[in-house]
Amino acid sequence: MSMQFLRWLIVAWVAAGGCREAFAGGEAATEVWSLDTMYRFSEAYQRALAAPLEDRAAQYAKAVTILNLPTKTQSNINDAANILTALVTADADDEVGVCAQYFLGRIAQAHNLDGANFPKARELFRKLYRAHPGHSLAQLGYVQWVLMELYDKQSADPLAARLRRLEAEQPALADREVWKNYHLVMGQAYMTGDVSKPRALEHYLLADQVGMIRWRGRSDFYAVIASLARETGRREVAVEYCRKFLRDYPRDQRSHIIRQFLNELQPNGTPP
């Protein structure tokens, strides 16, 4: 056997090993996510540890999994943040980079045991949305930014002023579901402290163009819209949502109340 052939054999074997590793790495992320959905975070983490460092998807999966390892310590959170930061530094614009930025924002917003850092989280989400306005997670980050703006305990602005400021933003959220959640957040905020029920209703009606996914959540949603519309004099809307509620939730504990609303709005049973 010639040396040349031997050399090629060695190169081929190493390359095959590398491919095997790469293939195994691509599978790693899938397996990690699969275990995560079963709340088996420890096993998911072990699987992620076996993945190569070059596998960005697996490293991202590892970082996000670390956020929920059974013993939640600041050290773990810092590890996760470091991994995500490294991923962003390497490439901030690919899919993994964008997702990593979202979760860096989430770490600042919700995961740090030392306390939430809303200013940092807001900055991260704002920056992400500006850089990638078309990405679903970036848009979701925008909604998180809105939430933090609305309920910022340090702000001296009254809620009404904050809502006005946010309304002026008119964000273009291409992902319809995220757009729906934006309107739900705004609607709920308008209800807080009775800022403006008509504005809340407008937002809810916009959200219902997409529709609530959760069955139980939808019953509350229809009841809120029906009740708000009735209070604010939007008779047709109230009738429509009373009917929707009774059609989908005939055995709900509010069905009797909604039926009374409908009778009151349609005293002779006539359509509006």
Partner: peptide, 8 residues
């Protein structure tokens, strides 16, 4: 009581 614990 579950698997999740947070250091405090």
């Amino acid at each position: 009581g579950g698997d999740y614990m947070q250091f405090i």
